[in-house]
Amino acid sequence: MTQPEDFTNGMRRLAAGVSLITTQRDGVRYGLIATAVTSVCAAPPTLLICVNRTASIHEHLIQSGSFCVNVLSANQSSIATRFATPKDRETRFDVGNWTARQTGAPALQGACVSFDCRTSHHMAQGTHTVLFGLIENVWLQDEAAPLTYHGGRFGTLTQIT
């Protein structure tokens, strides 16, 4: 059987877009940087996110029943770094401009797109929870190139053919 370290090292070679998953519960905002975001279907519009059950946001995502997937643009690497760093969690939302969308989950102004979702269901898989989100609203914002993650570093797309 494949070892977790081999899997993790292999997945670092898969370039992915960077998303900031946010939710709000009892008036408190929470956020997590993620690359495990996938479209599921267009009818009804649905996507899924995978969140480690040890993440500080995990229980808040489950209890709130909603989340926003903010697809970060290439010029938002400092925001990605801020949310990827455990230090000073309470001040993460001090960077960037935020607005609440239909579900109340925080949407980041200047992201490529924000998907405002209501959780339809969730399931455990190994160390993670897979949450399915029915998309209530799509906020198309910036046509900028997306921020990417590859080899343990944030970057940008240099050429699309």
Rank of each mutant, 00 (worst) to 15 (best):
M1S: 07
T2E: 12
P4Y: 14
D6W: 02
F7L: 14
T8K: 15
N9Y: 06
N9W: 12
G10L: 07
G10C: 04
R12I: 02
R12P: 06
R12V: 03
R13W: 05
A16M: 09
V18Q: 03
V18W: 00
L20C: 00
L20S: 00
L20I: 00
I21C: 01
I21V: 12
T22P: 00
T22S: 07
T23F: 06
T23K: 06
R25E: 15
R25F: 14
R25M: 10
D26N: 13
G27Q: 07
G27H: 14
R29Q: 11
R29V: 02
Y30W: 14
I33C: 09
I33Y: 01
T35N: 15
A36Q: 10
V37S: 04
V37P: 05
V37N: 06
T38R: 05
T38Y: 07
S39E: 10
C41D: 03
C41H: 05
A42G: 05
P44G: 01
P44Y: 05
P45G: 08
T46G: 09
L47C: 04
I49C: 01
V51P: 01
N52D: 15
N52G: 07
R53D: 08
R53N: 11
A55W: 06
S56K: 11
I57S: 12
H58Y: 14
H60F: 09
L61G: 03
I62S: 07
Q63S: 14
S64P: 08
G65F: 10
G65D: 10
F67D: 09
C68H: 09
V69S: 09
N70Q: 10
V71C: 01
L72C: 10
A74W: 08
S77C: 13
I79F: 01
I79M: 11
A80M: 08
F83W: 00
F83N: 02
T85C: 14
T85E: 11
P86K: 08
R89W: 06
T91P: 03
T91S: 15
R92T: 01
R92G: 04
F93I: 02
F93H: 09
D94C: 02
A100R: 07
A100K: 12
R101N: 14
R101M: 15
Q102G: 00
G104T: 09
G104A: 10
G104Q: 08
G104I: 11
L108M: 14
Q109P: 00
G110M: 02
D116E: 12
D116S: 05
C117T: 09
T119D: 07
T119K: 06
S120M: 13
H121N: 11
H121L: 10
H122G: 06
T127P: 11
H128Q: 04
V130W: 12
L131N: 05
G133E: 09
G133F: 03
I135S: 00
I135F: 01
E136S: 13
E136G: 04
V138D: 08
L140W: 14
L140C: 10
L140I: 13
Q141K: 15
Q141T: 11
D142M: 03
E143M: 08
A144E: 15
P146E: 13
Y149Q: 08
H150D: 07
H150P: 00
R153D: 11
R153N: 12
L157S: 05
T161P: 03
